[in-house]
Amino acid sequence: MNKLIFFLLFIICSMQISVEEKVNFDNEAYPFASDVQESLFYSLLNELRCPKCQSSNLAGSNSPISNDLKREVYELVVEGKSSKQIKDHLVDRYGNFIIYNPPIEPATYALWFGPFILILLSVLVIIFVRKRIT
């Protein structure tokens, strides 16, 4: 029983609590005709990565390049481009690096499937060890 509680605590503690970063922007700086466009804009800023400050998204960065990219995203949103079109537009220029959610392709197989392979291996090891003990 203790083991189970310990295990559950471990799982809970290691879960990353993901809270959408609430960044207060000056709404005057980015005026939108509709709420849909506005929420698209802010969700994109959270999903796009700052190329200069490599562990931050555009929303969390105030570097000159981030501000330029925010302006770029803003203009594309106002033009009525979709989320996918805007991401493609930036990936064409900066590569997959710019998005935090990379596509599944040979270069990212290790990233996407590595954790599952590790889980599988761990399960196999556990089964094997238990078998030997009994």
Binding site: P51, K52, P64, I65, D68, L69, R71, E72, R93, Y94, G95
Partner: peptide, 13 residues
Amino acid sequence: FEGRLAIDLGVYG
């Protein structure tokens, strides 16, 4: 000055 061509080139520094 505004970094427009720079964005089209994927410049980050």
